[in-house]
Write a protein that binds this DNA or RNA. Sequence first.
DNA 1: CTTCAATTGTTGAATATTCAATATTTTCAA
DNA 2: TTGAAAATATTGAATATTCAACAATTGAAG
Lengths: 147, 147
Amino acid sequence: MAKPTKTNTPITEHLAYLLAQANREINRQLELRLSKEGVPVEQWRILKVLSDGNGHSMGELAEAVLLNHPTLTKMIDRMVSDTLVYRVQDPNDRRKVLMFISDRGKVLCKKLNSLAVDQEEHILESYGDKPTSELKRLLESLIDSSN
Amino acid sequence: MAKPTKTNTPITEHLAYLLAQANREINRQLELRLSKEGVPVEQWRILKVLSDGNGHSMGELAEAVLLNHPTLTKMIDRMVSDTLVYRVQDPNDRRKVLMFISDRGKVLCKKLNSLAVDQEEHILESYGDKPTSELKRLLESLIDSSN
DNA sequence: CTTCAATTGTTGAATATTCAATATTTTCAA
DNA sequence: TTGAAAATATTGAATATTCAACAATTGAAG
């Protein structure tokens, strides 16, 4: 009887590792583009979420931009100093703070969007149209299945 | 003539965002499992890379485990204190340090591997066999195309 | 009503990460 | 062979993140 072969999976074959690696690489590229405007990726995400013009609570924002609460609070402090966003107390629930994007924030967000679109286009070129949309589809469904 | 529709892509449709989100979620799950042994994900990666028994330089390791040099140095310091790994000066190039896994490190690594395998199996169950391998394939080729 | 638990956001201390500077060794051109 | 440049790893200061505690408000049970 054959001994069961202990296939010690190399780290490069773990899904968690592949995701981390791909994320790191794509994020680095995006970071590089956005650095033209001196803005970290997280701030772009915040501006983008707020650019629907509605007020978003801190909790909601934290969830949407993948930051935990204290980190978000401190990043928002900086963005308020830079007058990119502002706080308004929620009149319906005074525990909450509603965040809004400022006019200056909107202008910056537009510039950042076009830098980000540049990157997406670059990916489409080097990686291909079909693989990209297929990858997006799979990622979405992975995320869904994890909740 | 119709005005060109400004389709302001929501952040949730950007590849960079989907990758960040998926990575965050899967990493959180893995973290949770490994916390049973009180070990951060990065240390598991380090142990796994070193568990081939060969010496690996700091630069090589940093690349493999997705950490930059100073962060790795400080994490290795901790792991040396915990006698999970040890440093040896490279005899062929004395600028380099070769890292090796200790016996204690090997024992721990095995436990961690099985916790990680548990997670992969859990993903296979909830997400499916085919989507998982397809996702891995696409991630690998994305990473390739980014270099 | 009143009180106690839950929710929301912020703060400060502890911890971790990053950037720039440093030390050491090797490489290579003159 | 020598001296300058490149490669490798570490350090310390600056910065960022996280954890636990807190304050304020709301919800809900008695």
